[in-house]
Amino acid sequence: MVGPTLDAIVAAKAEAQADLIETPVLPLTSARWDGILPDCAGVTVKLELFQQAGSFKARGALLGIRHLTAAQRAAGVVAASGGNHALAVSWAAQAAGVDALIMMPKATDPARIAGCEALGATVRLHDDMAAAFAAMNAAAERGRALMHPFEAEHMVLGAATCGYEYVTQAPQVDTFIIPIGGGGMISGMACAIKQMRPDARVIGVEPFGADSMSQSFAAGEPVRIDRVATIADSLGAPLAMPLSYGVARAYVDDIVKIEDRAMLAAMDIYQNVLRITAEPACAASLAAMIGPLKEDLSGRQVGIIACGSNISLARYAALMAAL
């Protein structure tokens, strides 16, 4: 068995359900979607942006902090992130009374920094994500409990509870389109989906400028890419790592790549049709469905995920100005 078992996923969902939101699944049946959606049997979107701390990351962060030992709680936790994971760890740590140290790149949206600080976390800024990760690892070596943004069993398990929910809420869906950053979300969701619906297709989505998982699939092992270049900072992992790569490789059927401009167009659609202010990663599934996958989805019941929306209005406006 690669990844968490279905029994473990069900147990994790039961353990955390009092503190998490079972986010809604919305069928995209309004006439306002006419001419946008592919010619498929149906489309639903799981609105995980309404999760605690604004993204799916809250699931894994909560499980990780709940499972700390007494000594680890006393030492505090450390994480590196440009946004969603940072906010999730800050939220889960505050709820548990655990001190949180968050390493973030200097280019991080100021609203995300302020959000972490409002939740009681200490934020330290670094030149870039690589420097933030190095600082995270150094703090862990000095004794803090490491809360890695994707390469951790609790992160995969947390994402698996999202996949379990989706299949339970929308059992008709036979094709799931899931964004890929470091691989924590797609590995966990795919693991749950395939155990519940072995015949379902799971398709990952990466920006062309952050395609570490695509390159890893091609190489047959986790690889690091030379450069990250995408507006989707939540999908900007510079490498794949053994755990999340291994689980994803076992359950993901295919990966497609999308341009940044396609995410901007999908963000605009979410705003105009659902009145959702989506960050780029949040719009990636929609962008892939109406873009490179559009001709392959005929007759399918498609499920996409709006995975998070931690973006300031200033950052959103700056991005949309380029559309």
Rank of each mutant, 00 (worst) to 15 (best):
E151Y: 00
S187A: 15
I180T: 00
E221I: 03
C116V: 05
L146Y: 09
E141K: 15
M147P: 08
G97Y: 08
G183K: 00
G163I: 05
I193D: 10
A159D: 09
G120Q: 11
F208D: 13
Q215L: 10
E206R: 01
S187F: 02
R142C: 02
L101A: 12
A139V: 01
G188L: 07
I113L: 12
M147Q: 13
V173C: 02
M103C: 15
S212Q: 14
S216I: 03
A130E: 15
H154K: 14
M129P: 11
I180S: 01
M147D: 11
F150V: 03
M189G: 05
M147G: 05
V167Y: 04
A192M: 14
A218H: 03
V98F: 01
F208C: 14
I203Q: 03
G220E: 02
V167I: 03
F176S: 09
A192Q: 08
H154Q: 15
L157S: 05
D99T: 14
R124Y: 13
V173F: 03
G209S: 08
D211W: 03
G220V: 00
A132L: 02
I113N: 10
E151S: 01
F176T: 08
A152N: 13
Q169T: 09
M189C: 09
R142E: 12
T161Q: 05
M185K: 04
M129T: 10
E206I: 01
A140T: 11
F208K: 11
Q195K: 13
S216T: 05
R112A: 05
G182Y: 05
